[in-house]
Amino acid sequence: MIALYVVAAIAVFAAIRATVERNTGRKLPYVNVMNFAVAGALVLLLDHPLSLVAAAAYFVGSTLEANAIASTYAGGGRRE
């Protein structure tokens, strides 16, 4: 099961890159890589039909979170 280790290592790498990056707009793509990696890991950890729903819910939820942060960041940048 080497795929699971690859995915977990990429999650750690993306989390480190997201932490080191200072700019908010450039942080978000790194967080997106981590979300992809975690969503893939959820299905690889437990082979059950509901795992697909869990991965989709996690992915859509984190995308919505990134969307909200980015759009508030865009509006806030103009106002400040």
Binding site: A15, K27, L28, V31, V38
Partner: peptide, 15 residues
């Protein structure tokens, strides 16, 4: 914003 992003990373490790 960076604080909220970091909280999101924490949840990604827990799920």
């Amino acid at each position: 914003f960076n604080k909220l992003i970091a909280v999101g990373i924490t949840f990604g490790g827990i799920v």
